[in-house]
Design a protein around this nucleic acid. Structure first.
Lengths: 296, 296
DNA sequence: GTCAATTACGTTCTCCGTAAGGATG
DNA sequence: CATCCTTACGGAGAACGTAATTGAC
């Protein structure tokens, strides 16, 4: 096995078809002499003469026929193996799965993923839209190649890099008293009807410490889906605070957003992947696109 | 496929197991530098990095894992293919089939075949004991690799070489009038009760032209099996004429044989094989033994 | 600082091509 | 005698080994 050469295998198969050294050599783009030597060497390795040949006739020996069966299969398998790995490398095949919070998947990531899919139609992209802990679980169990997450997970299981920090925005109706404000801080939310997102979401976890100091009017409502939240705000239930990348949903609903300028009120967005598990080329490419498309 | 090398494949598998270039290189009996280059070249051919490596850690990439599956299978298949052909060449495996007339298979060939089987226990030897035309048919249809036959067949379908010429012997009881004769010719069989072998056998075909001129006493009996013939002779039905290599059977039955010295009364023994079909190494070896063991 | 992989460079070996040799029809 | 495979020999390229370099812990 150690001295096996693909060239020799190819030579064998071509000669088997042509049954003429001269023709086969030409088809392999080598001199007839070199071709002869290649076959001779292959026969030496096989330990048996594979072709019976006089100057006028070339034919497979009994052993040659035997080898022919394996050779055909081998050539196919080798070709398939390299083609397969090559196509994965070239991102003509393969799959990549990412996990991200719904806020990032409302508009920002879908745009990037759409571009990737256009450029690499053979690669299957899977998306999991879920919150913090579940994101990390998906990465841990291998269901997702990587995640975008506000938490970087423990160092033993995960590796991560900070992509950027996301600002928070007040979301309200156009006719809301705060809707026309240029500058806004959390303190301005005092006495305003406020709708919370679910506690498991990173927005809540990020926002709560800051908001605790402000006497907001809690509506007692906790919503999970952005569309629900938008509907409630539109119908006058109150206002809420959302990270930058979820805003398109609210704008589409005719709502207004104003950035909260409190120092330190930012949501970190980490790229997280399983420690030790190297990312596929497809995943790396997609991550590259995400990094390039991240906001200023 | 064309630049594929078994060495690189082996290197990959060893490195996958060791996950250390230094150790893997040593196990492959090359310098660490050469090993590194081999892996690098393989990665170049595959079109993707197969190992993630720092100076302190080596691990398969996603593409490497993919390749690993094919690589393992490939190595096994390549190994199996060469081992298979090698074992056939070395006659540790394989099969060989020969066809020969019962006269040659009564003692002469079985002794040779027994020796061959002792030396090459992995090779399955098949034997067809049948007469002239059927022998050739078996060779034609590929059931037998070669045949020993008194007729060489037509030149279009068969190739042949003369192995030797077999003498004929009178076979009779010890108390027969001719049993003590030193020299004997066909003419001496006049007025002797004679038992024929079947007309399809080569003995009959060979003997008839010569015997026709002698006024033998035809018993009217035609037998097919030597054992029958021996039984008839033993019980006094008459005598018969048999080729040299069938004599052991008759000697064992207590009968006497005396060579017929007529010039030209010989049975040619040809080695016959299908034209264009090359003989396996096993067949060639067996033929070699047959040629060496042929009578003086 | 130490250990491990990579890179650099000179050497060795394999493989190829041109040309002569040999066998077959 | 023409054709086709084999052998011989010189040169190009690949692979190898030693040694210096880079990088990680």
């Amino acid at each position: 096995m150690i001295n096996f050469s693909g060239r020799a295998l190819h030579a064998f198969l071509v000669l088997e078809e042509c049954l003429q050294f001269t023709v086969a050599a030409k088809r392999c783009n080598v001199s007839q002499s070199a071709f002869s030597q290649t076959i001779a060497k292959l026969e030496q390795q096989a330990g048996a003469r594979l072709f019976d040949r006089s100057t006028r006739q070339v034919a497979l020996t009994a052993e040659g026929k035997l080898f022919s069966i394996s050779a055909r299969q081998l050539a196919f398998d080798i070709d398939a193996a390299f083609k397969n790995i090559g196509e994965h490398a070239a991102q003509r095949r393969g799959k990549v799965a990412l996990a991200a919070p719904p806020s990032h998947l409302s508009d920002w990531l879908p745009a990037i993923i759409a571009t990737y899919r256009r450029e690499h139609p053979g690669v299957q992209v899977s998306v999991f839209d879920t919150y913090s802990d579940r994101c990390l679980s998906l990465v841990r169990e291998g269901s997702a190649d990587f995640a975008l997450n506000a938490q970087r997970g423990n160092d033993r299981e995960f590796e991560s890099t900070l992509l950027f920090q996301e600002n928070f925005y007040l979301v309200c109706r156009q006719d809301h008293p705060l809707a026309t404000r240029k500058r806004l801080n959390v303190a301005d939310l005092a006495q305003v009807d406020f709708i919370h997102t679910v506690r498991s979401g990173s927005v809540w976890q990020q926002l709560m410490p800051v908001l605790r100091a402000v006497p907001i009017r809690d509506t007692g409502i906790e919503v999970e889906h952005f569309t629900t939240l938008a509907g409630l705000i539109v119908h006058g239930f109150g206002v809420s605070v959302m990270p930058q990348f979820s805003l398109p949903t609210f704008h589409n609903a005719g709502l207004v957003s104003i950035r909260l300028r409190d120092a330190g009120l930012k949501r970190p967005v980490y790229l997280v992947w399983a420690r030790g598990r190297s990312l596929s080329i497809a995943a790396q490419t997609l991550i590259g696109m995400i990094k390039r498309q991240k906001p200023v």
